[in-house]
Design a protein around this nucleic acid. Structure first.
Length: 423
RNA sequence: GGAGAGGUGGCCGAGUGGCUUAAGGCAACGGUUUGCUAAACCGUCGUAGGGGUCAAACUCUACCGGGGGUUCGAAUCCCCCCUUCUCCGCCA
């Protein structure tokens, strides 16, 4: 969320930012409503002051045995008026709230202006792209190995869900364990295991609500949402809290399944593991000082890359252009890995600096010294990384000519086997 | 799911309709004293939003888990919800 005063004082900048981000947000009423708001505040506060003063007089009169009937009658009128003014004020505040919670975050200055993913900027590549001889994608490979079952996933749940079987299930667990251990041991993260369902306030805090409501699974009876990413529980862990200067930057990570309705996606582009309703992900979250959050974004993105390097997966880092940068983000790097069967770059990580946008929504602050004024922290997060597409890529890139899949060395201690053989 | 007891500032804790603009304490910060530390003493000590100002000073309003209500006036009374604890029931 943007600061109300900031929007008021930088109205044109905010408008321009909305366009650059390719977002739709209506600001036409804003200035008028904001003016109204302040007028209504003055109206009602003036009367409240009067009520407070006279109430004290009434109190004094009653204590000394005087008659306060006239004053009480007067105040009855004033009280009714206050109620009316308060209702007006509340109405205007709701309207302003509705506008301001739908305004996207301000883009960082480094973000290139552009409309779609075609304007994204490739920052660098790593690893060697080796063409795959058998020309099999992960669906065909997994069928040959007997380790994934998309059909029964669809039967039991629906399309976009799958079963992992035998060594296939073990491989998934191995990938997750490997990534968590790596971030904890090599990058200094603290591991968290979090709830997979959260309340509305949490979804608002990280910016999924109100805009993305239709992209999430919602349990109506209990008013809870299935998390689309661990970012939500991990960032909201510190909601409504004041952190100490010394503990920043605070780095936490965690594994969770992620649930996404993906309501707009169909067809061949989304087959197999390319787009699913439930996938596994290790997420890194960083609560940072405002003055070095962009340095932290570089560090965090490097940490996600380390996972790909350790697994020897070719990847490229992409700086998203303004139009592709998400609602809550000020700047985002995507990591894409090369899948030799799909012959495509697949996004497996998105690393963002949200600056104070989420912190203001979720009210996460810090104090520089015990007596200084609280300031909003900067929040960052990045996938480190998402498994499904990584899983698909591991199958495709490590497929041998005999149809077996060799397990990357870093995963072998976690798997307990070094290859999966074709049936 | 049922019954009961709680939720007050960074923390502890008083307060059951009006001298409470939330007592008192701890912690924190500034100062005095002191050879140093400690102690003692004095002062400061919340958040948000208005007004005001070049900026301040200053001033007003709201906030006692959240939301409604009663009243001239609510931390205090009523209703709904959230949450913690104890007991009972059900259950992986």
């Amino acid at each position: 969320m943007l600061d109300l005063k900031f929007v008021r004082d930088n109205f044109d900048l905010v408008k321009e930012n909305i366009e650059r981000k390719n977002e739709k947000a209506d600001l036409s009423e804003f200035l008028l409503l904001e003016e109204k708001r302040r007028e209504f505040i003055q109206n009602t506060e003036k009367l409240k002051n009067e009520r407070n003063v006279v109430s004290k007089e009434i109190s004094n009169l009653k204590r000394t045995g005087g008659n306060a009937d006239n004053l009480i009658a007067d105040m009855k009128v004033v009280s009714d008026k206050i109620k009316e003014f308060d209702d007006n004020l509340k109405e205007v505040e709701l309207q302003i709230q509705d506008i301001i919670t739908r305004l996207p975050n301000m883009l960082a200055e480094f973000v290139p202006v552009g409309k779609s993913e075609e304007d994204n900027k490739v920052i660098h590549h790593w690893g060697e792209i080796v063409p795959q001889k058998l020309k099999m994608n992960h669906i065909e490979i997994s069928k040959a190995l007997g380790i994934l079952d998309f059909e029964r996933g669809a039967k039991v749940s629906g399309s976009g869900f799958s079963f992992y079987i035998g060594k296939g299930a073990k491989l998934e667990r191995a990938i997750i364990d490997f990534m968590i251990d790596y971030h904890v041991e090599k990058h200094g993260y603290t591991e968290f295991w979090s709830p997979f369902m959260v309340n509305e306030a949490s979804m608002f805090g990280t910016g999924q609500l109100p805009k993305m409501a239709e992209d999430m699974y919602f349990a109506q009876e209990d008013g809870m949402y299935l998390i689309p990413t661990a970012e939500v529980p991990l960032t909201n862990y510190h909601r409504d809290e004041i952190l100490n200067f010394e503990e920043l930057p605070k780095k936490i990570c965690g594994y969770t399944p992620c649930f996404r309705r993906e309501s707009g996606s169909y067809g061949k582009e989304v087959h197999g593991f390319l787009r699913v309703h439930q996938f596994n992900k290790v997420e890194m979250v960083n609560f940072a000082l405002p003055e070095n959050s962009f340095e932290q974004l570089e560090i965090l993105t490097n940490e996600a890359e380390d996972i790909l390097k350790a697994l020897n997966v070719p990847y490229r880092r992409i700086l998203l252009c303004s139009g592709d940068t998400s609602f809550a983000s000020a700047m985002t790097y995507d990591l894409e890995i090369w899948a030799s069967g799909e012959e495509k770059w697949l996004e497996v990580s998105s690393c963002s600096n949200f600056i104070d946008f989420q912190a203001r929504r979720a009210n996460i602050r810090f104090k520089r010294t015990p007596s200084s004024k609280p300031e909003f922290v900067h929040t960052l997060n990045g996938s480190g990384v998402a498994t499904s597409r990584l899983y698909a890529t591991i199958l495709e890139n490590n497929l041998q000519e005999d149809g077996n899949v060799i397990i990357p060395e870093a995963l072998r201690p976690y798997c307990g086997f070094d290859k999966i053989e074709a049936k």
